[in-house]
Design a protein around this nucleic acid. Structure first.
Lengths: 341, 341
DNA sequence: GCGCGCTACTAGAGCGCGCTAGTCGACCCC
DNA sequence: GGGGTCGACTAGCGCGCTCTAGTAGCGCGC
């Protein structure tokens, strides 16, 4: 029974055991021509026996490149989890490794990014970054950076996001067509995409001649935010102000919080009130009737992000690029005609 | 405007600019005695100017140790997100770096762990591993491994988990005291802790003389599972079989799915039915009335896991250790007396 | 003068790998 | 049989850092 403190085997160990040179082992492990099938087999067998695994630190040091993409993300955001799920396969397909670094309460974006760069990531993919554009621009000058879910207009940073305006417009048209007029928006505060969604909501309300009904309840991309907004609306109702007939939530989490609050208060969705979310994260399916929401294709966004990073690394793209994906309203059970309609 | 393809500066660059030896720069950056304050300042200033940052790959290669802990986790599990949040600060406190590796659909536990080991993690912390005990044992022989949320009885793996039995017992006693008899358990399938929870549920039912009411609905630790179970129960009710008066869900996500389904069907919680979750993830607060759940202290578990790993690395602990934390029933709004009671 | 201890600093050998520039033998072609 | 090509393999440098074993210089006591 070996001790766990034992030295991990190196290429030299494999080479010795297999009776070949270190270089040959290297060739075998890089899957390069220059080794006979027989030797190849033997080397791999020996390596497996003694439990050798290539040391990526050394490998990375030796070849100039790390072929590693760093991903900064926030635990607790289901949509970002979807993105992470999409990043892995695409990175692998292009021959890149992925390193994750989470932002948490005591660990800001700067820290998370530093960790990634320290590990020699060649590029950094930032999921919903909250940093100042200037900081992002600075980062973009130090390394290849891609922002997902948030535009970064005047910075040396590629970005991938959805046409928030279109998504909101679709949602609004859907609601208006159903007959809604009192449509409230719970916004996402500083969350990625919120500013654009808020703006598009305002525009849509005005376009439909509903400026008098226009109302934005400040929030953020959390369930709590939806709960708070729901309580606010219910409290107002109890004081005589009628409920809106529809709510456009900042994202799915917010919509879920709102739905829970409404359900508890006996407000039936969509009979008494319609709710539209944003993201189409797996939460959307949580409700039996399904959440009407604006779908952002996480897999596609992830693929774009990875490809932007890789292309910039390999082809020395100079201009910052922007991928704007079309969102798609996904009508499910939480939207319907307004009570009076 | 520099190109991003520019070589990153190395210690040699700093040394040259500062007019000292490479070794001295190394001393400064390791915060070791042997450099005068003046030189120290100068080196740091120069380093900052030219944008030098230590290359952790090279550093890691040079000193034998990486001082890095690898964490395998599943995106999409809020409780694991809580754990990750707890791991970072404790690791930092003990001077360790953290590397995350996610399991996703196309990326199994083996792959995730390989990635970590390839990056020279000295120890691996597995959040809710699903691997065979034999595989875990093998892993434990190759490196230091800690399993969180799942016991690994006969393997060279430390583990941190809660006393599932106690948690379930508390929940069951709470329900029985309220007067419940028809208590159904939606289990967590192969999810971490499920086996123990299921067993404890059965034991508790028998202890209270309710073996005739005993019922386990197979499930897993997802919202969908709760939804499915809810639909099943509702369908049965429509065919004449009465609803149970209480449900002990496999975890909070499952409980949430169930609650959504019940709310939609007009079943009022806790008036018509009580629901108890497990984990006390942030989901528990989602419902305005709050989810009655069994609290697992994620931060404490994370601290134990990190400490186990570090102590084993530094003090050559030989015996596998096990931390069993006491869960605590947290009574909120989803539990109450049964309809008839 | 010499040895001593101390601080400030440097030389240089690795860490485990990738990769370039080879070597060596077999085979082929005129 | 000389020269060329090709496949299989090896020697050894260098990646950016850490760390041991130094050296240089200085003040001190005798």
């Amino acid at each position: 029974m070996e001790t766990s403190g034992k030295q991990r085997p190196t290429m030299a160990d494999v080479a010795e055991q297999a009776g070949v040179s270190r270089a040959l082992v290297s060739i075998v492990f890089r899957d390069q021509p220059g080794a006979s099938p027989r030797t190849r087999d033997r080397v791999l067998r020996v390596a497996d026996e003694i439990g050798y695994r290539p040391d990526s630190a050394a490998r990375l040091l030796a070849r100039g490149r790390s072929r590693t993409l760093g991903v900064m993300f926030t635990v607790h955001q289901p949509f970002q989890a979807d993105l992470v799920e999409g990043i892995y396969p695409e990175a692998e397909r292009l021959g890149y490794d992925v390193l994750l670094s989470a932002t948490t309460r005591g660990r800001g974006e700067a820290r998370a990014v530093e960790a990634l760069l320290g590990h020699r990531c060649e590029a950094v993919i930032l999921l919903g970054p909250d940093a100042q554009p200037a900081d992002l621009d600075a980062l973009g000058h130090r390394t290849v950076a891609v922002s997902v879910g948030r535009r970064v207009p005047h910075a040396r940073v590629d970005s991938v996001h959805t046409a928030e305006g279109k998504g909101v417009r679709q949602a609004m048209e859907h609601l208006v067509e159903l007959g809604h007029r009192g449509i409230v928006h719970i916004d996402g505060g500083r969350g990625p995409g919120s500013a654009e969604r808020r703006r598009a909501y305002r525009t849509a309300m005005r376009r439909h001649g509903l400026e008098r009904e226009l109302r934005v309840i400040p929030g953020e991309h959390t369930e709590q935010s939806g709960i708070d907004a729901g309580r606010l609306l219910l409290a107002e109702r109890d004081h005589g102000r009628p409920l809106p007939t529809a709510v456009l939530a900042g994202n799915d989490r917010c919509a879920m919080g709102l739905l829970m609050t409404l359900a508890r208060a006996g407000v039936e969705v969509p009979r008494d009130l319609s709710v539209v979310g944003y993201d189409d994260s797996h939460l959307s399916h949580l409700m039996p009737i399904g959440l009407t929401t604006v779908r952002q294709d996480a897999v596609l966004m992830a693929e774009y992000a990875v490809r932007f990073a890789v292309e910039r690394l390999e082809n020395a793209v100079s201009e910052p690029r922007e991928a704007v994906l079309d969102p798609k309203l996904t009508v499910r059970g939480t939207s319907g005609p307004p009570p009076g309609g």
